[in-house]
Design a protein around this nucleic acid. Structure first.
Lengths: 233, 233
DNA sequence: ACCTGAACACCGTTCAAGT
DNA sequence: ACCTGAACACCGTTCAAGT
């Protein structure tokens, strides 16, 4: 029995049945011990959740040094989305840990280092982190709560949805139209909306970065507009 | 005793002490009845959560007919953020309700109607809803989990944070630099990042809309590029 | 050092019994 | 129709007692 094995088993339980099916008693049973024995390896259930969240961060792909920044941030976003789809219970508690683990801190540090090396000022790196991660986590949250079939399209096979669809078209015509003309059509998968948003945000960051670079160049025309020193006051 | 009063009291409990402090027994006590009596007015705790989420949607400001769309969407985003800051327990369960209430459906229908009237195709309205709401909810989630003082800046007064800050600067230098040079500086408030992201997304949508309008004009040069008919196949 | 039975203070919900 | 006591099957956690 190690803390590591307890965390891995806890991840398995949460992945399989949601965070609600993770209890100290069930986890202990899975490990072949009594619930009270767990407290020799972890401090509390909160401690277990801290450890689980840190494992989730450790599974996310990091940007590679030298990679073009938009490519790197797009890959990071897609990796985050994939990891959160595998561990949907983690979405709501990713940020709420009061004591972030080392994998979490290393993850953040590496992303910030990458952005700085790519020419982002400290303030612009904070902007980029905020808008990208807010979007990716919000999207993961919405995606996690959809009734999806295995192709990723909305599960419309049940009678109840079709009934609702009919009622909706009368009481809520625009929602009904969007459902009928787009969302419930065979080709539509909500997951594809991700690409639109991430592209839009990366292009926007590109523009903001160019504007900042131009401004820096005006203020200090000899500098290369690169990353070494902070440009924020 | 009515369902309405039960929901309002439940909201008060959740607002005050988080969703964890909302139990059927405590709610009943607050209402002056026994826990079991609640089941005469609501079907289950899930039913209560459904009702609470619908009330949260009813508190969000809707776009006004005729309003300029970027203004309207910015106001909607800020209102959503404010409502979710008042009811942080709602952020993680907003989308996960399997049976949305009438306020929720009316809210969505009104927003879609507004976007269609502003010239968005069905597909572009879906894009806009997805990227805006993912961002706003993701941001609300991150904001809800920060240790903020009343001015909205990070609470840096505790020794433990300063200690961590010192350790961090060695092990995680870029994170440490961002903390020291930006986040822990007196003027900084994480909430101000919201404006950067929402502006970036609205500008991006503006460009996408113009592109779509130009394409529609090429395909049917006599049309005004307006909202009446769907342009999605 | 590691494990555990009993216990405490909680949960959501059912059911039969009251008015 | 509305309320409720007792009960069931759960929680996280403490504590004294075992090896």
């Amino acid at each position: 029995m190690t803390r590591e094995r307890a965390l891995q088993t806890a991840m398995g339980l949460a992945d399989a049945g949601g965070i609600g099916s993770l209890s100290m008693r069930k986890l202990a049973a899975e490990l072949g011990i009594e619930a009270m024995s767990l407290y020799h390896h972890v401090r509390s259930k909160e401690d277990i959740l801290d450890g689980m969240v840190d494992i989730v961060f450790s599974e996310m792909e990091l940007p590679l040094p030298g990679e073009e920044w938009k490519t790197a941030m797009r890959r990071r976003a897609e990796s985050t989305r994939a990891v959160l789809a595998k561990h949907p219970w983690a979405i709501g508690i990713l940020d709420s840990r009061t004591s972030p683990g080392t994998a979490t801190l290393r993850y953040l540090d590496t992303v910030i280092a990458f952005l700085r090396a790519a020419g982002f000022s400290i303030a612009m790196a904070a902007h980029a982190l905020s808008v990208l991660d807010s979007y990716v986590r919000g999207f993961a949250m919405q995606e996690a709560s959809l009734p999806l079939d295995q192709s990723g399209s909305i599960e419309a096979a049940t009678e109840s949805i079709l009934e609702q669809q009919h009622m909706m078209s009368n009481a809520f015509p625009h929602l009904g139209e969007m459902a009928a003309e787009l969302i419930l059509k065979p080709g539509y998968a909500y997951g594809n909306e991700f690409e639109f948003g991430i592209g839009l945000i990366l292009d926007g960051l590109d523009g903001a970065l160019a504007g900042e670079g131009a401004e820096a160049a005006r203020n200090a025309p000899t500098g290369a507009g690169s990353a070494a020193s902070p440009t924020v006051g």
